[in-house]
């Protein structure tokens, strides 16, 4: 697979969307208020739509005849290329929201940059997705500030979520040769934008970024936390037990 960096890169982008989309969709019918239930379902739907484009591209370029569905339902945990952040469990609404914000604050500038990628097929998927990601970032920013700078309880929960999840944010920006081959120079700009944006928002939300946190990584090369296997067991059950089942 390493022969073509675009295949691996499309898997990373697609798996991020797939794993986050699947996790977020589990909130459908369980969110604290109706408007959030609808918003979570909509965000999940956008992410699954983006998954189809990225994994469709990965499957096509790979040339082994695997469809987006094959890649989603028939790969095992070590073959997934998503970052560790998106596979962290939903836990409470605060953790779900913090995970979303830490992702959106990277996803939006990344897609913006990819809209000008040298590979036209990467660029057109990014051009389509960036418009959706803008709305995701708009919502998660708004809620982080409202809940961070909210009641004692909501502040406490948001700070707890940030303390727990911040250590997974570094992997988003930790670029390797594959990222560099597809994105080109400019990856450093995304890191600068991310730091600038998140510290501005957390400041407004009266939340404190943990100092000297060790950044966890491994997801991009297939080394995942325990949570991903559990999620895949649930998501892939039908295709594993009834191969090729359709409706």
């Amino acid at each position: 697979m390493a022969d073509n960096p675009t295949v691996e890169f499309a898997l990373r982008m697609g798996d991020n969307c797939l794993v986050l989309g699947q996790n977020v969709s589990a909130w459908c019918g369980h969110a604290p208020v109706l408007e959030e239930d609808i918003a979570l379902a909509n965000v999940a739907l956008d992410l699954i739509g983006q998954t189809r484009m990225w994994l469709g591209l990965a499957g096509e370029l790979e040339g082994k005849g695997r469809s987006a569905d094959d890649l989603a339902f028939l790969r095992d945990v070590r073959e997934f290329r998503n970052c560790l952040l998106v596979e962290q469990p939903n836990s409470d609404f605060g953790q779900t929201l913090m995970r979303q914000f830490l992702f959106d604050a990277w996803h939006h500038p990344m897609l913006k940059m990819l809209s000008g990628a040298a590979d036209a097929r990467v660029a057109e998927i990014a051009e389509k997705s960036v418009k959706e990601a803008a709305y995701h970032l708009d919502r998660s920013t708004d809620l982080i500030i409202r809940l961070g700078d909210g009641s004692d309880e909501s502040h406490h929960r948001m700070q707890g979520a940030l303390d727990r999840l911040w250590r997974y944010s570094g992997e988003l920006m930790a670029a390797d040769a594959i990222d560099e081959a597809v994105v080109g120079p400019g990856l450093g700009d995304i890191e600068a934008q991310y730091k600038d944006y998140t510290s501005k928002v957390f400041g407004e939300a009266t939340l404190t970024i943990p100092e000297a946190a060790f950044m966890q990584k491994g997801g991009k090369v297939g080394l995942h936390t325990e949570a991903l296997g559990h999620m895949l067991a649930d998501m892939q059950f039908l295709q594993r037990s009834y191969p090729g089942a359709q409706w």
Partner: peptide
């Protein structure tokens, strides 16, 4: 939406035409 704008344009109510409206959710 350009991302993180957090500004809302005034949208006219399609029922009474008033511009005195508010966004409940972008979704």
């Amino acid at each position: 939406c350009a991302g993180a704008l957090r500004t809302r344009t005034r949208i006219k109510c399609p029922l009474c035409g008033s511009a005195n409206t508010e966004c409940i959710s972008q979704f």
